[in-house]
Design a protein around this nucleic acid. Structure first.
Length: 651
DNA sequence: GAGCACTGC
């Protein structure tokens, strides 16, 4: 590559970047909300906000991350008496880590013990007290599940749905239910916290009909640093290579501050690290400008072990600059302090479910304006920063405003079963924040009907009622219930837990991968992946459940520990439904039959050319390379598969 | 012979 130097003081790296024409006006990542050109009021004093909560049933709150809305707002409400008379203030988060860390911080601020006045509830962990807790942080999925038990959520006086702009399936379902609850219980207050661009959508949603009369929107002023945005002039072909060049040039041109690069996936990240590794030796041989620092490139993606992820947070030695090459995890899930430069490739990988074919796929798609703003904002958390977008400004202007809500591109089988359980039978009349596609609803209903969860009239059956309570997919739940007939509850429980966690086996690239592959073979069962997972789980519990053991046997300790938690939770459900937990005592036939009873809709037949044909739809299927059946023929010529996915494989 | 965005109950 050629080394290009910029004059000091220019916006910087990106060849042919002309400051005058290509640097957008410096902006604040969280601009005030505008409607038809009119700026909506910004509230600086808490009494204004409390007045709105008092006067309006629904308040949409816009504020930057770190303006204190998540930690401060519930405390204001507490002081204003919203948690008197045994009421609880809830604050929901899309992620477990946010619920726990925020609860910890707020309980410290109030000088109380975590789990007393301030607590949290996430799957597997309830650190709260029925008597004492006044402010409860929880995942939105957890609160949605609570509606199955208490349909009016009667213990809560205020429910704040935080990070609503992320539009997870559970956030959407929860908002739909909350709107319904407010009609029956107008004393309930709802606060929806959102990013600027989505705020108007939520306001419109809550004020679109006459019965939900009172909704308003307020902006909270926060401390933000300006972020300068630079665009590339011409579209580029290889953003991975370009990202590496830009990182290199930032290091030469700019003062101190760490770099965060957004790429799409592990493959991109590794290639970018390779490109940077090739450039690194020149650090020693060239005479570099005095501003240049030692560059320390680090990968970041969800597949890393906890240990590996810790490197990201350690501050680099003096004179060294971290360059964190990341997937979308760094956009909202992981926050790294000290980032001054962001490089944004403009793409993201999202999972798309096609309801017509029942095929899931991972697609690389352009990000939204909201997402680009969020990424840029990562540069301005602790000081003014610069964001380099690896796409022209014209491309930016053509981006969709927001990312499509998950509910529009996911399998709706489980959510619809849960809605049915809440007594919402007419799905066409349900007041969705965004409607799922009609085909998606139809496919889910058809599937629920075929597996006996709903009757001919679309009403929940007794088994459907019980399955809706189980926190697993319908097929898995069916399997758990049928294990009674096959006397194999013990093993089915393990298989259910193991199929729920992903990335159980850790197979790295290269020579280490070949060794890991050999380790995995020790667990391989000729019956297939379900039995292989069962073997791995049993070995894990037999040999002391240690991380060292996992490491030497190509297993992910994180995944295995999670499987243990899920298994014990599912065991409680089985006991509640009086399902016996018996062992099949090595009778693999009985176990196979039980698997088929849950997953008979996912049957496929082996053919002589090595491919499979699905029973439903007669589609040509290939075995995924991560399956133990990738290298072998099924003994009976028939398989049941866990899921179908569309990949890059051709032919 | 071929592949792994990210969450959540």
């Amino acid at each position: 590559m050629s080394l290009t130097f910029w004059k000091p003081g220019t916006a910087g790296p990106g060849s042919n970047l002309d400051r005058a024409s290509e640097v957008e006006e410096t902006f604040l990542p969280y601009a005030p909300v505008q409607r038809q050109g009119e700026q909506l009021p910004i509230f600086k004093h808490r009494r204004n906000l409390l007045y709105c909560v008092e006067k309006y049933g629904v308040v949409i709150v816009v504020g930057q991350t770190g303006c204190g809305k998540t930690t401060q707002l519930p405390q204001y409400l507490l002081q204003a008496g919203w948690a008197d008379e045994g009421h609880v203030i809830a604050c929901t988060q899309p992620r477990r880590i946010a619920a726990t860390s925020v609860a910890t911080r707020v309980s410290e601020e109030l000088g109380t013990k975590l789990g007393d006045e301030v607590g949290y509830t996430i799957r597997f962990e309830d650190v709260s007290s029925k008597e004492k807790t006044r402010i409860l942080y929880m995942t939105d999925g957890m609160l949605f599940r609570e509606t199955l038990v208490d349909p009016l959520l009667s213990r809560y006086s205020v429910i704040m749905v935080d990070e609503a702009h992320e539009r997870s399936v559970y956030t959407d379902l929860l908002l739909g239910i909350l709107k319904k609850i407010r009609k029956k219980r107008p004393s309930l207050r709802i606060i929806v916290s959102s990013a600027t661009l989505d705020a108007i959508n939520f306001l419109d949603y809550f004020s679109q009909d006459r019965s939900s009369e009172k909704a308003t929107i307020v902006s909270l002023e926060g401390r933000t640093y300006p972020v300068e945005v630079a665009y590339i002039q011409e579209p580029i072909e290889d953003f991975v290579r370009k990202a590496a060049e830009v990182v290199w040039n930032i290091n030469l041109q700019q003062g101190p501050g760490d770099i965060l690069v957004f790429l799409t996936g592990r493959e991109d990240i590794e290639r970018c690290l390779d490109e940077l590794a090739e450039m690194l030796p020149t650090q020693a041989t060239y005479r570099l400008p005095s501003t240049a620092m030692r560059l320390l490139p680090l990968p970041l993606h969800a597949g890393l072990t906890t240990e590996e992820q810790l490197h990201i947070f350690q501050s680099a030695a003096s004179g060294t600059r971290k360059a964190i090459i990341s997937t979308n995890v760094a956009e909202a899930s992981v926050t790294i302090e000290g980032i001054k430069f962001v490089v944004d490739c403009g793409f993201v990988k999202i999972r798309i479910f096609n309801p017509t074919t029942a095929l899931a796929s991972l697609a690389t798609v352009p990000i939204s304006v909201a997402s680009a703003t969020q990424r840029a904002g990562r540069a301005g958390r602790t000081s003014p920063g610069i964001c380099y977008r690896l796409y022209p400004i014209a491309v930016f202007k053509a981006l969709p405003m927001t990312t499509s809500p998950e509910i529009t591109r996911t399998d709706m089988t489980t959510p619809i079963l849960q809605l049915k359980s809440l007594g919402i039978d007419d799905l066409m009349k349900f007041d969705w924040v965004s409607s799922p596609p009609a085909e998606s609803v139809l496919r889910a209903l058809e599937g629920l009907h075929a597996s006996g969860m709903i009757d001919d009239n679309g009403r929940l059956t007794p088994i459907g009622e019980r399955v809706s309570e189980c926190p697993v997919e319908v097929g898995i739940a069916r399997m758990l219930f049928r294990s009674k007939d096959y006397h194999c509850g013990e093993e089915i429980l393990t298989i259910a837990a193991m199929t729920t966690v992903q990335d159980v086996f850790v197979i790295p690239d290269g020579a280490a991968g070949a060794l890991a592959e050999l380790e995995r073979r020790k667990f391989t069962a000729e019956e297939g992946d379900h039995f292989t997972l069962l073997n791995a789980y049993n070995a894990f519990t037999k040999y002391g459940r240690s991380s060292g053991w996992c490491k030497s046997h190509a297993l992910s300790f994180r995944a295995m520990s999670r499987a243990v938690s899920i298994r014990s939770q599912l065991k409680k459900y089985m006991q509640r439904f009086n399902l016996p937990i018996e062992s099949c005592e090595g009778d693999s036939k009985r176990l196979s039959r039980c698997l088929v009873s849950g997953y008979w809709r996912n049957g496929a037949r082996w053919t002589a050319d090595g491919t499979y044909r699905s029973v439903r739809g007669d589609m040509v299927l290939h075995v995924h390379p991560t399956s133990v059946l990738f290298t072998r023929k099924p003994r009976t010529g028939w398989v049941v598969f866990h899921e179908m996915e569309e990949t890059k494989k051709t032919q």
